[in-house]
């Protein structure tokens, strides 16, 4: 059905635009998360969380983000199923000529990230939105203490391990995805493409380390 409606390239272009949009969200989310490491009272983090939860622009954006995830996941599945169907009989000797290693595992890394997202959603988003959080008072006012939720969750070694693994896989997803998105959009140029590839790798490493630092620092301190 989708195949009849949208050309392969159309799907890839949408996929890449949504992928880059999700990537930008990762940066914002990580910046806020990192605030929790900067003070013991979690004031910076709680204030930022309060801002994100009440700002009307962010609140609207949240829905666009939500739709973005759904589109990315549905298109990813459709593309992958078509790709599997294109080779009904496989090879005895599997090829390994790829020049972008993690491209072979986009659906696998994506699937784990998806499971992680569901868990993450239940742990933080649902509790922050619908659950009852304790309040904490600073000189700037009284805020819901979302930070304490984070600190408590990251006492659990199993959860920390899963968090770290999922983020690592997200890093792999991005290592291929970042430069791939530019190629899908037709942005390949002998001057800029080598730069994009290096930036993509450095960016994935930065995102991975940034996210992983939080549970590790909390768990071990």
């Amino acid at each position: 059905m989708v195949k009849i409606m949208y050309a392969s390239i159309t799907k890839k272009i949408v996929m890449s635009l949504v992928g880059l949009f999700l990537t930008s969200f990762l940066v914002v989310h990580m910046s806020i998360n990192l605030l929790i490491l900067f003070d013991d009272t979690r004031q910076l983090f709680n204030e930022a969380a309060h801002f994100m939860a009440t700002n009307p622009f962010i609140q609207t954006f949240q829905w666009i983000l939500f739709i973005g995830f759904i589109v990315h996941i549905i298109l990813g599945l459709v593309l992958q199923i078509q790709n599997w169907m294109a080779r009904p009989v496989g090879y005895d000797r599997k090829g390994s000529s790829e020049m972008s290693f993690f491209s072979k595992y986009m659906i696998h890394t994506g699937a784990i990230v998806f499971i992680f997202l569901l868990l993450h959603f239940a742990n933080f988003f649902v509790k922050a939105k619908f659950g009852h959080l304790e309040e904490i008072t600073y000189d700037s006012g009284t805020f819901e203490d979302l930070g304490i939720l984070v600190v408590q969750l990251f006492q659990d070694g199993g959860y920390v391990a899963f968090y770290v693994i999922a983020i690592l896989l997200l890093g792999f997803h991005l290592e291929h995805g970042f430069q791939s998105a530019f190629q899908s959009l037709g942005l390949n140029h002998n001057k800029y493409t080598p730069v994009i590839k290096v930036v993509g790798t450095l960016f994935s490493i930065a995102i991975t380390l940034g996210y992983i630092a939080i549970p590790l620092v909390i768990y071990f301190s």
């Binding site: 392969s8 390239i9 799907k11 890839k12 272009i13 593309l79 078509q82 790709n83 169907m85 294109a86 080779r87 090829g95 000529s97 790829e98 020049m99 972008s100 491209s103 072979k104 986009m106 291929h176 430069q179 791939s180 190629q183 899908s184 959009l185 037709g186 942005l187 390949n188 002998n190 493409t193």
Partner: peptide, 26 residues
């Protein structure tokens, strides 16, 4: 199938056609 930008095609092409062509087509 669709293109995942794995670039195995360029590596195996006997005429070493560049994947820059794929970007041009997109």
């Amino acid at each position: 199938g669709n293109c995942t930008n794995t670039y195995a095609c360029e590596a195996e092409c006997p005429k070493e056609i560049s994947v820059a062509n794929i970007a041009r087509m997109n």
